[in-house]
Amino acid sequence: SEHYTFDGEEQAIRFMRDMEAKNLKYELQIHNGKYIIQVD
């Protein structure tokens, strides 16, 4: 699995939509205002 970190919500949402379009599962965590997305 890989981790991707985003500072902004818009970037994170765009990335998650992209993952959904590719049928990839992901998990979102928010730490200290950063959006951390783990992709299986």
Rank of each mutant, 00 (worst) to 15 (best):
E2D: 11
R17T: 06
Q38P: 01
R17Q: 11
R14N: 10
K25Q: 08
D18F: 12
Y4L: 04
E20P: 01
I13M: 12
A12K: 01
A12V: 04
K22F: 07
I36G: 01
H3M: 14
R14E: 12
G8C: 15
E2T: 14
E20K: 06
E9I: 13
Q11V: 06
I36V: 10
Q29C: 10
D18R: 10
Y26V: 13
E2R: 15
Q38F: 15
K34S: 06
R17N: 08
I37G: 01
F6K: 00
Y4M: 04
K25H: 11
K22A: 10
A21V: 07
E10D: 11
Y4S: 02
D18G: 05
R14V: 09
E9K: 09
K22N: 08
A12W: 05
D7L: 08
L28F: 11
N23Y: 06
F6I: 03
M16H: 00
N32F: 07
S1Q: 12
G33C: 03
L28Q: 02
D7R: 04
A12R: 02
E9Y: 14
T5I: 14
I37W: 01
K25I: 07
K25D: 04
M16I: 11
N32L: 07
G33H: 05
L24W: 09
D18Y: 13
Y26D: 00
E27F: 13
I30R: 05
D40G: 12
G8H: 14
M16G: 03
Y26L: 05
E2N: 13
F6C: 07
A12H: 01
H31I: 15
Y35V: 02
E27P: 01
E27I: 14
M16P: 00
M16Y: 02
E10Y: 06
M19G: 02
I37T: 01
H31D: 09
Y26M: 06
I37S: 00
E20V: 06
A21N: 09
D40W: 15
H31L: 13
K25P: 08
E10G: 05
Q11H: 07
I37K: 00
N23K: 10
I13D: 06
I30H: 05
E9R: 10
K34H: 09
I37C: 02
R14D: 10
F15E: 01
G33Y: 03
S1T: 12
N32D: 11
Y26I: 07
Q11P: 07
A21P: 02
L28R: 01
N23E: 06
K22T: 04
Y35N: 00
I37L: 06
L28S: 03
I30V: 10
F15T: 01
K22I: 08
N23S: 08
A12D: 00
Q11Y: 06
F15V: 03
N32M: 09
A21L: 11
K34D: 02
M16R: 01
D7N: 07
D18N: 08
I13E: 09
S1E: 08
E20G: 04
E20T: 06
M19P: 00
Q11L: 09
E9Q: 08
A21K: 10
R17M: 12
A21S: 10
Y26T: 08
V39L: 09
I37Q: 00
V39K: 03
F15L: 03
T5Y: 12
G8K: 14
E27A: 11
Q29A: 09
M16A: 05
Q29F: 14
K22G: 05
I13C: 10
Q38R: 15
H3L: 14
Y35K: 00
D18W: 15
M16K: 01
K34V: 11
F6N: 00
H31S: 11
I36H: 11
L28P: 01
F6P: 01
Y35S: 00
Y26K: 00
Y4T: 03
K25N: 08
E20M: 08
G8R: 13
N23W: 05
A12P: 00
K25T: 10
Y4F: 11
H3P: 09
I37E: 00
I30C: 11
K25G: 06
S1M: 13
M16Q: 02
H3C: 15
M16V: 05
K25M: 07
Q11N: 07
Y4R: 04
I13A: 09
I36D: 03
I37D: 00
D18S: 10
I30D: 02
E9W: 15
D40E: 13
D40L: 15
M19S: 03
Y26F: 11
Q29T: 14
I13W: 09
K22R: 11
K22P: 02
K25E: 05
Y35F: 10
V39F: 06
T5D: 04
I13G: 04
K25Y: 09
E9P: 11
L28I: 09
F6S: 01
A12F: 06
N23M: 08
N32Q: 09
E9D: 04
D7G: 04
L28M: 10
A12I: 02
Q29R: 13
Q11I: 06
R14S: 12
L24G: 03
Q29K: 13
N32H: 08
G8W: 12
R14F: 06
Q11D: 14
R17K: 12
A21C: 09
I37F: 10
D40M: 15
E9M: 12
K22S: 07
E27S: 14
L24R: 11
S1K: 13
E27H: 13
M16F: 02
G8F: 14
S1D: 08
A12Q: 01
G8D: 15
I30T: 05
L28G: 01
H3V: 15
L24P: 01
I13V: 09
G8A: 13
N32A: 08
G8P: 01
L24E: 04
H3T: 15
D18H: 10
L28D: 01
I30S: 03
